[in-house]
Nucleic acid binder design. Structure first.
Lengths: 221, 221
DNA sequence: CTTATTTTTTAGATTAATCTAAAAAATAAA
DNA sequence: TTTATTTTTTAGATTAATCTAAAAAATAAG
């Protein structure tokens, strides 16, 4: 159990995991290069190595998928990342736009008992400060079905429950607009001209947001 | 401020720092090799690099000392290590013999605001679970004067306030003998034959400990 | 169904950290 | 104060992760 991989290997596994979303399970070399801020040639080298270790299924020129082992490893890193984010916000008082980079380092600390104790200390949270679900210690993810505001219809309502963009600049904006997690919204108008959307926030104030913002805020209907 | 060094560089700085104790301020290549579990040749290479960066004063064949910059960096790592140890014991419920290795990883996480917030969260502790003083955010260390039990005289009394050996096997033994931090002791006999020492623990129970154990338990008189 | 473009891989180098074996310097012993 | 021993450094390799430039494969366009 708990085979240990290098810092770099872990980052590649995580990148592949995040790129393997629903429909798009096979991931390309270039996608990985972009996500890891490396060049395609470097990715190819690493893919050979990960395939050798049975962490990915890799066929030359065809892209990669994670094996069960690789997926377990990736989910475990995600679990650690998200638990540390909860710690940073809930216990140390960081804001939700400040924790991503620190968690990016903390996620590589290797101790199963540490992470399980942290989980208990935090009260076994279901989601991180951005609404992303935290895998339990068996690796199971209880994902609520969320839709982008940009995919909602007129007169539809729901509660903001996540985001799909984690840059500080975006998160600060969302906060300033009062669209933090838990906020209830009702779509009042879909503006055809530029795709922007008008909504009522928490039953009272009116607000218009751009399509770009709407695409990155996730709602539970 | 807060120049960032590699994981490995940090470990060398820390090793040199711990080896530069009081009387012995100049540290040798072999000492560093032993502490870092590397070979002398590797140490020489790294010393050149650290000297180049002005973190150490290094003269070939003569040994090294830390520069002010190097010492600051080292103290900061020690601060992080000890604060994380407090966190692990006080908040996550680890035992004092379980935290060293995890803190060894956590000490390399790089974020000044993280560590200062952690410090506050923990109530700005003065010492770690082994009694070692925690440098404050300016790098100042408020070290209490401690003596080894092996250096005490008959009829002398004091309070156990630290250890100088961190292996799990030693710490578990100390705990089993009821000689944890805060315990009051009175020396009743110095046994000439093998250097072992008899003492009264917390005013009641009698105990004899070997010289080897006595050397690694520190007392505030 | 060729040709052009894009994507991916290979080949060959580079950097950081390490090693072994041999040479050089410092220290200890005779 | 020579000789022997120990310590330290140099020389030359190795491994992991990366890069650029060129070659090969896959995909898209004409």
């Amino acid at each position: 159990m708990s085979n240990t991989h290098s810092f770099t290997e872990e980052n590649y596994l995580k990148a592949i995991y995040h790129l393997s979303t629903g429909n798009n399970s096979v991931v390309s070399t270039n996608q990985i290069a972009e996500m890891t801020n490396t060049k395609a040639a470097s990715v190819t080298d690493m893919l050979k190595k990960l395939a050798e270790k049975n962490l990915i299924n890799y066929i030359k020129y065809q892209g990669v998928t994670l094996t069960d082992t690789g997926k377990n490893a990736a989910v475990n890193i995600v679990r650690k990342h998200r638990l540390w984010e909860v710690f940073l916000v809930e216990k140390l008082g960081f804001k939700w736009d400040e924790v991503h980079d620190i968690a990016e380092e903390l996620e590589h600390i290797n101790s199963e008992s540490l992470i399980n104790r942290l989980d208990d200390f935090l009260g076994n949270p279901a989601a991180d400060p951005h609404g992303d679900p935290i895998p339990d210690r068996s690796g199971t993810i209880h994902q609520k079905k969320l839709v982008r505001i940009s995919d909602m219809y007129q007169d539809q309502s729901g509660m903001i429950s996540g985001v799909s963009e984690y840059s500080s600049i975006f998160l600060k904006l969302v906060e300033k607009m009062g669209l933090t997690l838990g906020t209830k919204i009702l779509i009042t108008e879909l503006i055809e001209f530029d795709g922007s959307i008008t909504l009522i926030v928490n039953g009272n104030s009116d607000r218009t947001i751009s399509r770009e913002v709407a695409k990155n805020i996730l709602v539970m209907l």
